[in-house]
Every structure is written in structure tokens, then in C-alpha cells.
Design a protein around this nucleic acid. Structure first.
Lengths: 345, 345
DNA sequence: AGGTCTGTTGGGAGCGCTCCCAGACATGAT
DNA sequence: ATCATGTCTGGGAGCGCTCCCAACAGACCT
């Protein structure tokens, strides 16, 4: 924590230049790692910087250079409740970690209301950030298209559809669901049901697809009465589970498209006197805290959330860099998931 | 989303002035809500702003005014795991909500390593933010003192000790714990144990104090064998619970200083064949997702986390304002907690 | 009529940087 | 010796704002 105790104004680039006996331009070159600076000069400047405890003024730099050295992480308010728990903090952790080596700043923006969204739209339209990370957007969110229209570099977490035009980072939802169901089948289950997410969400459709793929691959029966629609809430899980038990009382396994829904399903199974995993094996998705603390602990599909955060930042920085140099970026990434086996299956 | 489609450079204050037929100073006055502008002029300027879709350039403003219009929310990395789930996102939600009306920006900074801490120290020392929100600092964290030393406005969440010199927002840990234990006593429990947090954390000491206060007020026995030290982890809760059962097998209630520890305790109770709440009543602290999903659902003490976030921002803005006008702020706040009754007690 | 306020307004100076051009110097080729 | 070429360097211009001072108009007094 070597910080000069000097009170009042902070040293400026100009003062560093004077102290080192060089010109402003030279100091700027050293700071920005430009070539064409002799080793001797560079050393002298670096020493002056250290001795004066100089820290560049971001505002001045941003003003002069026309860039902001900041990216925004945008989170629709609803998500902070729904996906609250490993997701939210996991992404932030990954983003922050990847940004630590950069001197980019992270601006956090929660969007609660259409008014706030418009305000943010204004803000990005005025190019007050260099790029935007958009968390779990809904299909009808106008923000991604706006960003693309004003040519603001952006990366989404998750896709809105199969052919997402905006760069994105996603995890292999289909593969994860498939692995989960294959696992159930591997444990000898033969009547495997599923509780899905809302069908207008791409992520929900992917997980359902994975379920179907696994059944088909194993040659097991596919019955629409084994598919119940949930909404990613616990209550939705409850409702769906009741429906499944009514339609197919002979089911012996359930794959839930989220842990929270699995928690709801589990409660209904208990009410109905079905043991887990004895009578019915249960698998969730997300590997959240809920999964670990359920009784019995829930087998679940883990997404590499932190890694997704990192990948988003890498992608965004590439986009920004690419945009500057005239070439395009568009580096989508789909990260693998992992089945975490616990005693519910 | 009324945004002029004009490509290229954004309109500047100067252009707004020209468009409205006034001087730069006048536009600046209108934007910053200064007095001494005639209604007629103000209206004209506002219309020009709207018509051109003008958004002030933060960097330019910061540079000229010497302030940044940004505050930093600093989170020690460890906390994002430990307190991850309602705490982290709750605070952020509150902070963001309170900031929405302001045009302050929120910079998020996770601090993982001493190196990153030093870097942040540099950053704030260079006055690159107007204020700092510091989450759950440890007693040995040098950051609060540094901030105070360089006269950077700051607000802590939680105190490091009883006489915290830096402004803070906290919840009534003592009162919450006391209410929890009183609740247990009210339900007829007579041998009430507690699992504490690490004694070097002030929050843990407060919750223990609340436990003691309640016992004393009820005239119940206080036995040191009824107090077991945990560390806010599930495993710590397990260990503590085993110790308690060994030392006082006759206990009929346990107050755990965190939900996570309560989850550990609950697991041990199950192993030992003690029913909850039949044999042993259980109460936690935090009202986290874990509490809701335990079996049985855990009675817990809820902190008004979102409100704490809001209070932190209000306090910080006061500090910043006060600092500017030469007077001091120092508005600490201790918010009330609330007992959420579920079936574990 | 002259003087003094008060309320408004315009615009110069400057915030601390980056960009870029021109100049200084060294090197090698002619 | 001369010139071209290249490397390094200094500093002017300007980014878009806020601050502040001077100027002006009108109201009110003496």
C-alpha cells in the first residue's frame, strides 16, 4: 500500500513528465505500453511514476481517447430473484476475475422497470461504456437488438433462440439434460418423466430436447403424459409433479429442468408417500444450494457458471478489440455441463 | 426508447446550446438544476436536449468538475461464497434501487488477493470514485482505515467492533438472536443451546450476547457446555452440534448463529435419531434459501438486507454531500430484524 | 438623471489526458 | 560529404464539460 501521503491534488501526467525530465507524450507512451520508447527513458518514467504514486485519471483519459475503459453488466431485476443463488454471484465472480488483469471497470446495472431500461438504452446509445454483458435475456427483450443496432459490443449469457444473432456464451443445456436422463436410465429407471421450464424460453426447450434425445437413444417410451410444464418456480414444480402423478402413477423417475422445481416436486412426492430415490429417482438442473440441502441431496446438472462469466468477458473484449480494428468478433461459446451425482437418484 | 438515429458523434453540450440559441453556461445550468435560469430559457433548452437526444458526457463532466459520479461497492471475495445467497444479491438489489434515482454509477469490485486490494487502494487514493461501500469487512481489513485516512467517504455493512469509527449500517444482531431464543423459550424449551460464529467476528459476539440476554431474562440456566463454537460453515455446524450432544444430551433446543450451520446441526440431529422439532427445536439466522428448503423448514431470523443496501447508499450520499459542504455525516443505522417462524421450532 | 441592486446570461479558462505532427538525432547508403 | 531512412521525442490541439467572472437589462431608489 505504497501511497504518497501528499495531501490535496494528485500528481498528473504532466508532473510525472517534469519529474522524469521528459515530455508528456513520452510518459503517455510508457503508460500505454507503446513501442518506440528507449529503455532508458522508459525506466526513468516508470521510476517517476512509482515515486510520485501517479495513477492516471480515467476521466481525462476517457475524454481524450473517446473510450471509457468500462463495461456494463446488465441484469434484469427478475433474474436476481429467480436465479439468485449460484448463478448471479457466480457470473459476477467470473466476470470480475477475468477483468482483474485488465484495467477495465465493471459497471453493474440492474434493470427493474421499462423506465430504467430506457434510461440504460439512452446511456449506451451515448456510448458511455465500451461494451455490455447482458444476463439471461428474455425473448422479448429489446435491448440486444438495440445494442446491435447502435453497434455496441455485447455478449449475452444464454441464447434467445437457436440462431441468436448477438454473440453469446451458453452452456450445453441439451447435453446436460441428456446426460441427466441417461443417468436415470442407467440406474434402471424405465418410466422417466420431466418437468420443463416455460416453453417460450429457449433454455427450457433445450433441456426438454435433451430429455427426448436420451429416451429415444435408449429406445424408451415417449409419452406426452410424462412431460409436464413448469415455470422454474417451486410452486410450478409442485403443480407439475401433481399432474404427472395423476397422469402416470407408474413413473419411477423425474428429470426437473431446475433445482427449484425439483424441490417442489420432492415435496409433493413426500406428501404422496413416494420415497426418493426408492420409489422415484429425482434429478435437477443448476446444482444450486437448494440441491445440496435437499433431503435426500439432489443429483443435479452443474453449469460452469464462473467459467461462463469469464468467457463472456473474453468474448466481449474480443468484440471491442475487433470493432476497433474493423474486423468482426462473433465468438460464441457453448460450455459443457457436468452431472453431480447425489443420493436422490 | 426515443433515441435519435443520427450516426457518428453524439451531440455535445455546445451543440445543444447552439440549437437552443443560448450559451454553454446556460445549458449547463439547466442540466444541473441550478437556479437563476428563467423559465422561458429553461424550457427552450430542455426541448433542445430532448430533440437532439443529448446525453451528457460523464468523462468530460468528471474531468471538469473533479468528481466522478460513481461509487464503488467492494466485496471481499471470500464473502461471495460464504454469504452468497440472499445477502450478496440482496445488498446489490438495495444499493442499485437506491441509486436508480441518482445519476451515480455503481462500480463493482471484488477483492480476492492482497495484490488486488492494494490496487484498489491505489485507485481510491487517487480519488477515482466519490465514495465506497464496503461489504462485511473483517476486523483485520486495512481498507476501512485507509479510506478514513484519505478522507474518502465510506459506509460499511456491519461493524468490526462495538465502537466502529467508520460509518456503518448494521442489523440488530443482538436483538434478533434474543428474539429467536425467547421464541424457543416461549415454546416451552428449557435447555437451550447455541452454535456461535467465530468469536473474533463482532457479528458472532452480538448473536451470542442476544442468546445470553434471553436466557438471563427468562431466568434459565446458563451453562458453558450449552455454547459451542462454529465458523459459519455447514461442517462447523456439524462439529458443534456433536459437541453439544455429547456435553448436554438433555438439550431440547438449539439456536444457530447462521442457517448454514443450522443445516449442519440438523444433519447431525438426524443421524443421532433426534427429531426436529419434536426432540429438539432449531432456529437459524439469515433466513436464507437453505432455511426455506430444509426439512422441516427452518425458523430463522431475517435481516432486512435490501433495506440495508438502501440505507448504505443513503448514508454514503449524505457523507459525500457532507464532506463537500465541510460538515460531517456519520449517520450510522441499525435496522431491526424479524423472526420468521417455520416448523422447525 | 444617476446610482445601486438583483436576476440572468455568455463565454474564457482550464480539468488531465491522447493523438499526431514536426523536429532532433543516429544510422547507413550513395 | 550528402541524402534518405528510421527511431525517438516534445508539445500543440482538442476531447466536452464546469467554474467563474464580467456584462447586461430591468427594477428600484435617491
Amino acid at each position: 500500500m505504497t501511497v504518497s501521503g501528499r495531501r490535496g491534488r494528485r500528481p498528473t501526467l504532466e508532473q510525472v513528465a517534469a519529474y522524469a525530465g521528459v515530455g508528456r507524450g513520452t510518459v503517455s507512451r510508457v503508460i500505454n505500453g507503446a513501442a518506440n520508447v528507449s529503455d532508458q527513458t522508459r525506466t526513468a518514467v516508470q521510476q517517476a511514476i512509482a515515486e510520485l504514486g501517479y495513477v492516471p485519471n480515467r476521466a481525462a483519459r476517457a475524454l481524450a481517447a473517446g473510450s471509457t475503459d468500462a463495461i456494463a453488466l446488465v441484469i434484469p431485476e427478475a433474474e436476481t430473484r429467480l436465479f439468485a443463488e449460484p448463478y448471479f454471484s457466480g457470473i459476477i465472480r467470473g466476470v470480475s476475475a477475468e477483468l482483474a488483469d485488465t484495467d477495465m471497470q465493471l459497471l453493474l446495472t440492474l434493470i427493474r422497470t421499462p423506465k430504467e431500461r430506457d434510461r440504460f438504452a439512452q446511456y449506451v446509445t451515448a456510448h458511455r461504456v465500451d461494451g455490455v454483458l447482458l444476463l439471461s435475456v428474455h425473448a422479448d427483450d429489446p435491448l440486444p437488438d438495440l445494442l446491435q443496432q447502435i453497434e455496441m459490443p455485447a455478449v449475452l449469457s444464454g441464447r434467445r433462440s437457436g440462431d441468436e444473432p448477438v454473440p453469446y456464451v451458453d452452456c450445453d443445456n441439451t447435453g446436460g439434460a441428456q446426460a441427466a436422463v441417461e443417468h436415470l436410465i442407467g440406474r434402471g429407471r424405465r418410466v422417466v418423466a420431466t418437468v420443463t421450464g416455460p416453453p417460450d424460453m429457449y433454455v427450457a426447450r433445450c433441456r426438454l430436447q435433451g430429455y427426448r434425445d436420451a429416451l429415444r437413444a435408449a429406445g424408451l417410451e415417449e409419452d406426452e403424459r410424462l412431460v409436464a410444464e413448469g415455470d422454474f418456480t417451486e410452486e410450478g414444480g409442485r403443480r407439475a409433479m401433481r399432474g404427472l402423478l395423476a397422469a402416470r402413477p407408474d413413473l419411477d423417475a423425474v428429470f426437473c429442468a431446475s433445482d427449484v422445481m425439483a424441490a417442489g416436486a420432492r415435496a409433493v412426492l413426500r406428501e404422496e408417500g413416494r420415497s426418493v430415490p426408492g420409489d422415484v429417482a429425482l434429478v435437477g438442473f443448476d446444482d444450486s444450494a437448494v440441491a445440496r440441502h435437499m433431503d435426500p441431496p439432489l443429483t443435479s446438472v452443474r453449469q460452469p457458471i464462473e467459467e461462463m462469466g469469464r468467457a463472456m468477458v473474453r468474448g466481449l473484449l474480443e468484440e471491442i478489440e475487433g470493432r476497433k480494428e474493423g474486423r468482426g468478433g462473433h465468438s460464441n461459446r457453448v460450455l459443457p455441463t457436468e452431472l453431480v451425482r447425489r443420493s436422490s437418484s
